[in-house]
Design a protein around this nucleic acid. Structure first.
Length: 697
DNA sequence: GAGCACTGC
């Protein structure tokens, strides 16, 4: 390799955790470590054969209410532990063993594997539940895999989760919003249900903080031991993974431009290293497209020599067909180079990767509770992330990871863990869910990582202004309870409920479904002009939301055709999801006693329903400023209509937007034109009529 | 006239 690389000092090591805290400790179950390991059980250090993996887990579960399992990728814990528990009788008497995952795909694949291992039909003894799919049989299913979000929803009907005897929360170190909420609630449930067993599966780096979080207060501990019940001390069990060794290299000097550094690193790997695919982590579509172009140009320049390289971009905005290219088999002698966002860090697994190039950056969401604006910025990743990225090189054989930063930076400056999503997000959805579960004191909730008081207060304010919470911060009836029932952003849910009286619920649930997915347009294909033209075919003067109705109707008229989507630059997978969400909403409306009515072509009532949820997002065109400058009514924030909006350059006097995106300017995405009188009509508590001001009209 | 990391209910 080029001489600027120096080998890292991160050595693979067996995981031995100290037992100073009094927790139970166990040694590795990795095949590479044979013989015996040390375990400290009930404070006594013992030598135990490592193959007693099953025994150790059952010991912990039977004698501890809370167990922290530490496991690496490929340690088999996710598939094995539920089976051990079932064999030991934990899934009997009508109770189930539950196992959560943060992603739908993981739930499906783990459930499938366990059913196979047990030789049963999926959906019988072993089943799974994800949104839109419930593959379980009541009374028969003993082991149930589900997404953490589904388990949270289940709590709304069964707050103590009485169906389950053991709940395993996998990938807890990822610290997703749902996982953090789930852990907080499970800790609460344990007080009411001391017999409930929890298994929290987390990466080593997070084990200690998880363990401390579940550490009971002294008093309860004494009570428990008096009753002769199992110790409530959290325990740590270490399970070693089976991945191959990945050799880490760092830059000698910091790179001024990680894009350039990534490109030249790929080229030197291709020149100097044996065959094996390369995976490059960059931050977003722009970077990725640029890198793909640079590499492709370079390969052409160098002619035959470099033609043995196929460069493929990967990010979620691509159509399914384009994404699937990364899985296509290579002709012999060709090297695959995948340039990816974080999607390849956890969501997609590429087999055959031997080299990883890690830029050290990713795009991350941050939330400012003062301005109530979420934005997306390129930020340094954490050590945990860097480790996960490197691990992607060791799935088929020993691999190499090239970090585009110095070892000194890694050791001294890179944060150990990322900031939990809970502290980077708008909390309206989380707060309403907690309220629906009867948790009144949001500020006093025992969070794993507490969000700022400002964020919590802002969320309460927004929910109050929507009429979802009353002056005492209690859910209103029926609006508050209904909004909590709908699995969407509360502002969208409020919009849906208002469409009932306005008689446009058919149209509004279509709009709600489209707004709750990322984008219905495909990216990465064709020219910008073609895409704009496609969009123009559907556009109407009332704005983007009404334009979406045209798109959906076109999709239906085409018989949900993939060709139609392709021709119109629309993402077929996204539209399929829209149809699914819409169907779920339709059923939910029925349950809530809301009639589905169409307003035909009356877009005014549709826009009024949108305002009922989004009145806080109203803006007025600055009458004397440069053209196209808007100010938010509340807050006087300067904003612009995003060029992708059908209202771009149309600049109606009054608009309401769905979301703001902050880049060089604050851009409004998804905008409708409104009449200002609708604002005071929909939200008199929020807007009051001013004395006529000539500047306004 | 310019930009959308990634999940999930």
């Amino acid at each position: 390799m080029a001489q600027f690389w120096k080998p890292g000092s991160e050595k693979p090591r067996p995981v031995i955790l100290d037992d100073e805290e009094g927790g139970v400790l166990f040694f590795s179950a990795a095949p590479s470590i044979s013989g015996y390991g040390y375990a400290s059980l009930e404070g006594q250090r013992q030598r135990l054969p490592v193959f007693k993996h099953r025994t150790a887990i059952l010991y912990l579960v039977e004698s501890h209410a809370t167990t922290i399992i530490v496991g690496e990728t490929g340690s088999g814990k996710t598939t094995q532990i539920p089976q051990y528990l079932k064999e030991a009788g934990w899934a009997e008497g009508g109770r189930m063993v539950a196992c959560t995952q943060p992603r739908r795909l993981a739930v499906q694949s783990v459930a499938t594997r366990v059913a196979e291992e047990m030789g049963v039909k999926l959906g019988k003894e072993v089943g799974y539940t994800i949104r839109f799919e419930d593959i379980t049989t009541p009374g028969v299913t003993m082991i149930k895999f589900l997404t953490d979000g589904v388990l949270l929803r289940e709590m709304m009907n069964d707050p103590l989760l009485t169906k389950y005897s053991v709940i395993m929360v996998d990938e807890a170190h990822e610290r997703s919003l749902s996982t953090d909420m789930l852990l907080g609630l499970l800790k609460k449930i344990q007080r009411r249900r001391p017999e409930l067993r929890l298994i929290i599966s987390s990466a080593t780096i997070e084990a200690k903080s998880m363990s401390n979080y579940f550490l009971p207060r002294k008093k309860r501990q004494e009570q428990a031991s008096e009753n002769g019940t199992p110790s409530t001390q959290p325990a740590i069990l270490s399970v070693e993974g089976q991945g191959f060794v990945v050799e880490i290299s760092y830059l000698e000097e910091p790179a001024p431009d990680y894009l350039q550094a990534a490109v030249s690193t790929v080229l030197s790997i291709h020149d100097q290293e044996p065959m094996g695919d390369i995976l490059v982590f960059l931050t977003g579509q722009d970077d990725i497209d640029a890198a793909v172009q640079l590499l492709t140009e370079n390969a052409q320049k160098r002619g035959k020599h470099s033609s043995g390289m196929l460069v493929i971009p990967l990010y979620s905005g691509l159509s399914r067909a384009d994404q699937d290219l990364v899985f296509s088999p290579m002709p012999k002698g060709k090297r695959k180079v995948v340039i990816s966002t974080n999607i390849a860090e956890t969501s997609l697994t590429l087999e055959g990767v031997v080299y990883v190039v890690d830029s050290g950056f990713s795009k991350q969401r941050f939330y400012n509770p003062i301005t109530n604006i979420e934005n997306l910025v390129v930020a340094p990743i954490s050590k945990a992330s860097a480790k996960q990225r490197a691990g992607r090189a060791g799935r088929v054989r020993p691999g190499k990871c090239f970090r585009l930063y110095t070892e000194e930076y890694f050791v001294k400056e890179m944060p150990a863990e990322g900031i939990p999503e809970m502290q980077r997000s708008n909390l309206v959805s989380s707060v309403i869910q907690l309220k629906a579960l009867g948790i009144d004191n949001i500020l006093g909730f025992d969070w794993l990582a507490s969000p700022s008081p400002e964020s919590m207060i802002r969320a309460l304010e927004v929910l109050y202004s929507l009429g979802v919470l009353d002056e005492d911060a209690k859910l209103t009836s029926p609006t508050g309870f209904q909004v909590a029932e709908i699995p969407l952003d509360p502002m969208i849910s409020k919009m849906i409920l208002s469409s009932n009286e306005l008689g446009c619920s058919e149209e509004i649930i279509t709009i709600a479904a489209i707004l709750s997915i990322q984008s219905i347009w495909v990216s990465g294909r064709g020219s910008q002009k073609e895409l704009d033209e496609a969009r123009l075919r559907f556009s109407v003067a009332e704005g983007d939301h009404i334009t979406y109705l045209n798109v959906y109707q076109g999709f239906l008229r085409s018989g949900k055709s993939t060709q139609w989507c392709h021709k119109n630059f629309i993402n077929y997978q996204a539209m399929k999801k829209v149809a699914e969400i819409r169907e779920q909403l339709r059923k939910l409306m029925k349950q809530l006693g809301i009639n589905l009515k169409s307003c035909d072509k009356d877009t005014q009532v549709i826009r009024k329903a949108i305002i009922a949820g989004f009145f806080a997002h109203a803006c007025r065109l600055e009458p004397f400023g440069q053209s196209g400058v808007y100010k938010t009514i509340r807050g006087s924030q300067e904003v612009y209509i995003h060029p992708s909006s059908v209202l771009f350059r149309v600049n109606p006097k009054w608009v309401v937007y769905h979301s703001l995106v902050l880049t060089e300017k604050h851009y409004m995405r998804n905008v409708i034109a409104i009449d200002p009188s609708w604002l005071t009509e929909a939200a008199p508590h929020f807007y009051q009529l001013q004395k006529p001001n000539p500047a306004m009209f």
